[in-house]
């Protein structure tokens, strides 16, 4: 009897060993299998080195599938912000200063052909420190994605998820992504043609 239980035990051990062997094999399966198996969110806090971003960031006013994220701030990069330092009804601006300050350097190239946008289609006509969407809602310069997404809704959907735009510096840690205007100058958003940064080598056959 004793001998029998002993053999049972060894059989059990054998089965356990086999199973553990199989599970280790399963983890070596195809990438697709491994991706489909992994449904547990990754603990981003375990990567200590992925913190401390140098740039100024703000919490996005929208989230993606319930997850909050940050975007790079815009206002601190705007040279003449606040706009109301000039655009108010208190102070008169001299013609000579006006030449410097009338944004004559801006070449609008946003929208094709005759549909090229004008200033007040995005800028708030009264409150110059803000943008305005098609519903007449004020939009903060730091949250321009709310404005751009009205027309470019496909890009915005991808941007929220991560297929458009870029994460800043880290793949781990807190999700910080670039704002629309970090890459696209709002007045002429298309990238300009230029020479490549380097050359490419031929494919050897």
């Amino acid at each position: 009897m004793k001998v029998r239980s002993c053999s049972n035990l060894s059989a059990l051990m054998f089965v356990i060993l086999m199973l553990s062997g199989q599970s280790s094999l399963a983890s070596q399966g195809s990438v697709t299998d491994r991706i489909l198996e992994a449904n547990e969110p990754f603990d981003n806090s375990q990567i200590e080195s992925a913190h401390s971003l140098p740039d100024q960031t703000v919490w996005a006013k929208e989230n993606f599938q319930g997850r909050k994220f940050k975007v790079l701030a815009r206002k601190n990069h705007m040279v003449r912000y606040r706009c109301t330092t000039c655009h108010n009804n208190e102070k008169k601006i001299l013609v000579n200063d006006g030449v410097l300050l009338t944004h004559g350097d801006i070449k609008m190239n946003h929208g094709q052909g005759e549909n090229n946008l004008t200033c007040v289609e995005c800028h708030h006509p009264q409150d110059r420190d803000a943008l305005i969407d098609k519903q007449g809602e004020k939009i903060d310069f730091d949250h321009s994605y709310q404005l751009c997404g009205q027309c470019h809704f496909r890009q915005k959907r991808d941007w929220l998820g991560g297929a458009h735009g870029k994460r800043v510096k880290y793949w781990a840690g807190e999700r910080v992504i670039r704002n629309c205007t970090t890459c696209h100058p709002a007045h002429a958003p298309k990238f300009k043609k230029r020479m490549p940064a380097t050359y490419s080598l031929p494919l050897t056959k």
Partner: peptide, 19 residues
């Protein structure tokens, strides 16, 4: 241009998984 997406495939919340 943001053509390159990198991340953890085992994290369902990652950008690469979204793609």
């Amino acid at each position: 241009t943001g053509s390159r997406v990198f991340g953890n495939l085992l994290d369902p919340d990652s950008e690469i998984r979204f793609v």
